[in-house]
Amino acid sequence: MSLCLVAGALVVRLGVDAATLAWTHSVEKTAWEEDWAATAQGLVLREARVRGSGAGMEPPPDARFTGGAWRWTPHLPPLGEVILRRSGATADWRVCTRSGCRAMDELLPADADPVVMKPCWRGLTPAR
């Protein structure tokens, strides 16, 4: 199982089963990160982190402040996919793996929207 990014007919296999999606909140200009894992049940959100609060990004009551960020484990069931929109009005998504972070436009064309993150089976075939 691996993570894939899909934009139309283009499929980019990340070659890892877990990655962090990172972005900067468009209003608060605050860093937000989510750790996702591809499992046989679907995409699992393991941890969310935000480096501030305000404008719809208040951490939940069970969040703890460590390492300069509010951290918590969201209580979501596994998802079949996560849809990532790219407006061009804000900085692009960053995808972080063990080998480092890359802007989404290093992986897919800058105008590819939406981008769907989903689990992939062997090869380049997204899971259904």
Rank of each mutant, 00 (worst) to 15 (best):
E33T: 06
R49W: 01
G52M: 08
G100S: 06
T66W: 02
C4P: 09
R64A: 13
V50N: 02
G15Q: 02
A18F: 05
L10Q: 15
A18T: 12
G80Q: 07
L14R: 11
Q41Y: 14
D62M: 11
T24L: 03
C96W: 11
M57N: 11
M104I: 07
V115Y: 03
R102G: 03
L5V: 00
P78D: 09
A63Y: 04
R128T: 11
V82R: 02
M117K: 06
L124M: 03
R122C: 02
A19I: 15
C96L: 11
R85A: 07
S2C: 11
T66I: 10
C120E: 13
A103V: 08
E33C: 11
W93L: 08
P59R: 03
A19F: 09
R51C: 00
T66F: 03
H25F: 04
V27M: 02
L124E: 10
A69Q: 10
D105R: 10
D35H: 12
E28I: 01
A69R: 15
G123R: 14
V95R: 03
L45T: 09
C4S: 13
D62E: 12
D17I: 01
R85N: 09
L84T: 10
V12M: 02
A22T: 15
A37I: 04
E58R: 12
V95I: 15
G123L: 06
E58M: 10
C4T: 12
V115L: 06
G67N: 09
T20Y: 14
C96H: 10
S2E: 14
H75D: 13
R51M: 01
L124G: 06
W32V: 13
R86H: 12
W121F: 02
A110Q: 08
T24S: 02
A89M: 14
E28C: 00
G68E: 08
M104W: 09
A110W: 05
D105L: 00
K29A: 09
E33W: 13
R86F: 01
M57A: 15
R49I: 04
L108S: 04
M117W: 00
L45P: 05
A103S: 14
S53T: 12
R102N: 06
P119Q: 08
S26V: 10
P114W: 00
G88F: 07
L108G: 01
P78V: 06
A40I: 15
P60N: 07
G52P: 14
V82M: 09
G42R: 10
A89L: 15
P61G: 02
E58V: 04
L5E: 15
A31L: 14
L3Q: 10
G54I: 14
W93I: 09
V116I: 13
M1E: 13
R128N: 02
L14N: 09
D62P: 11
W121T: 11
S2W: 09
D35I: 03
T125V: 07
V6Y: 14
R94S: 07
G123V: 06
T24I: 13
L107D: 07
S53Q: 14
R13H: 08
P60L: 07
W70I: 11
P60R: 08
R13A: 05
A9M: 01
P59F: 05
A22M: 13
V50E: 03
G15V: 01
R86D: 12
D35R: 15
E33H: 14
S2N: 15
W93S: 10
